[in-house]
Amino acid sequence: MNKIKIISDSTCDLSRELLEKHDISIVPLLVNFKEDSYKDLIDLNSEEMYKLVDKHNMLPKTAAASPGEFLEMFKKYLDQGYQVIYMGIGSKFSATLTSATTAKNMLENEDVFLIDSQNLSSGTGLLLLKTAKFRDMGLEAKEIVKRVEEIVPKVRSQFVIETLDYLYKGGRLSALSAFMGGMLRIKPIIKVRDGVMVVGKKARGNIKKGIDLLIQEFINNLDDIDKEFVMVTHSLAHESYLYINDKLKDINDIEKLYETDAGCVISSHCGKGTIGILYIMK
């Protein structure tokens, strides 16, 4: 049986504990404030990033990991006799998969396998946990890739946004829409579908109204959800997590309900207070 190493990037938003438990290594994306560049989750966490946003009165620019970083990481494990499976942020969200593909082509090694998660944050994280499960079952790399690619379209990632400022400043929302949304206290639900972000329902009022929509959708789909892993991922919104956990804790057949923190790259695009429930359909 071949040794298999799983590699992702810092946008997967798995906790350090989960990464270590499942032996998943991370290539960091970059967060840039003018001339200052930080490696996501290595040089900077989300709380520190928000302080820099306030200090500079600007959002950072994020950048994909370079081919060189993937080349170094892939070669490290190939030289130890591993096959490598990489899966990180979806190809429509970042050029990171392109960098990984460039590195694979430079190595000209068929023991590097790449999967497009078509997702972000712990939507990718859920797929990584499945990948680790299949590896630990002793499956071959090609079979793991095949099984995970079949699961990719079954991932459901949705977040409720506390503030529209980050979507506006990041160029994803017009000034008028941001103004009207703020005036009407709209909390949009952002979903990932077919590899891109779309706007779902829009709650009006405080963020709990939006969270309740997420919870209700989860409960409505309960019979069709793979309950092995469920993620509640947020950007400095622990109280909102506790609210969700209280609502879901009596659903006995959820095997693992994880709280995870959004890293700097994800947080820089969604803003403080954002929270989501992420899961896989059967």
Results as ranks from 00 to 15, higher is better:
Asn2Pro: 06
Lys3Ser: 02
Ile6Ala: 04
Ile6Phe: 02
Cys12Gln: 01
Asp13Ala: 08
Ser15Gly: 08
Arg16Asn: 15
Glu17Tyr: 04
Leu18Ala: 07
Glu20Trp: 04
Leu29Tyr: 11
Ser37Arg: 09
Ser37Leu: 08
Lys39Asp: 10
Leu44Phe: 05
Asn45Ile: 00
Tyr50Met: 02
Asp54Ser: 12
His56Val: 00
Lys61Glu: 14
Thr62Gln: 02
Ser66Leu: 01
Ser66Cys: 00
Phe70Arg: 07
Lys76Thr: 13
Leu78Ala: 06
Gln83Trp: 09
Gln83Gly: 13
Gly90Pro: 02
Gly90Tyr: 03
Ser99Ile: 01
Leu107Phe: 02
Phe113Met: 11
Ser121Arg: 07
Ser121Glu: 09
Ser122Glu: 11
Ser122Asn: 12
Thr124Leu: 04
Leu126His: 00
Phe134Thr: 01
Met137Tyr: 06
Met137Thr: 01
Met137Val: 00
Glu143Asn: 11
Val148Phe: 06
Ile151Thr: 11
Pro153Trp: 01
Val155Ile: 09
Gln158Met: 09
Val160Ile: 03
Glu162Gln: 10
Thr163Ile: 00
Arg172Ser: 08
Ala175Phe: 12
Ser177Val: 00
Ile190Lys: 02
Ile190Met: 05
Lys191Trp: 08
Lys191Arg: 15
Val192Asp: 03
Arg193Val: 14
Ala203Met: 07
Arg204Trp: 14
Gly205Ser: 11
Gln216Leu: 02
Gln216Lys: 13
Gln216Glu: 12
Phe218Gln: 11
Leu222Val: 13
Asp223Ala: 06
Ile225Tyr: 07
Glu228Arg: 09
Val232Ile: 15
Thr233Ala: 05
His234Asp: 12
His234Ile: 06
Ala237Asp: 06
Ser240Asn: 15
Tyr241Thr: 08
Tyr241Asn: 10
Leu242Met: 14
Tyr243Gln: 08
Tyr243Thr: 08
Ile254Asn: 13
Glu255Asn: 10
Lys256Asn: 15
Thr260Arg: 11
Val265Tyr: 05
Ile266Phe: 05
Ser268Leu: 04
His269Gly: 08
His269Gln: 13
Gly271Leu: 05
Thr274Lys: 14
Leu278Arg: 14
Ile280Pro: 00
Met281Ala: 06
Met281Arg: 13
